[in-house]
Amino acid sequence: MNLETHLRSRRSLGKSLLIPYVTGGLGEPWLQIVRAVAAAGADAVEIGIPFSDPIMDGKTIQEASQRALDLGATFSSIVAQVATLDIGIPIVVMSYYNPLHHAGHVRSASMLADAGIDGAIIPDLPLDEIGPWADAADDAGVETVLLAAPTTPDDRLGRICERSRGFVYGVSLMGVTGERAQLASQASVMGERLKAITDMPVLLGVGISNSEQAVAAAASADGVIVGSALISRLLRGEGPDEAFTFVESIRSALDA
């Protein structure tokens, strides 16, 4: 499924887009969690490939990643499990660069494509270094989503939008992933700056923690990504039912 085409068509219905994040390999029922968030009205799902040194992640996703690694999750085991999913919406993986680099650009891109994975988010692979990976990913049909940050200057923001595939990921605050009590003031500025220069779907993520914040962030963009707020529930022992309820509550708030 083409990620960008799918998101554009959902956007054209006049609704805000919602992409929940789930750490791959986080306990036995993790595929059920993915199915639950898809059924709750996600427009796409982001699956994290756990990495030993996740420098863009705060404590919640660090803990989830470590737990998944301790349970034996690997790049190939997660990709193989994703291949068994049939959820009717695009799947995007979030991976740090080293596991992809280690497997080889062409090989890892084709592994993703063969598993039915539509896109990739690589938080430590900026525009300037993306060439070799992006060539392989483009060839394989994997859409590489670039991140834009509050610190990104205007001219660079334009180049990021040109090179990004699928959507543009606007980082909504100065910091790493994790729940926040309030939506950062940078969120709406980020959304507005991106919307002013691109027609591509713009989603805001990092620190968006509940329905209220999701609605506020989505006002300046096409939608939101929600990660740590969901993962912290799973780390507390909640399962597919609670994940469904949580994502559905954000969905309803966005649709209201």
């Binding site: 430590d124 300037d128 610190t151 990021i160």
Partner: peptide, 18 residues
Amino acid sequence: LGRFGEFGGRFAPETLIP
């Protein structure tokens, strides 16, 4: 790109690039 042969470079989160 700050390369030493094939090594080096700037593989950092976008927030830090500027």
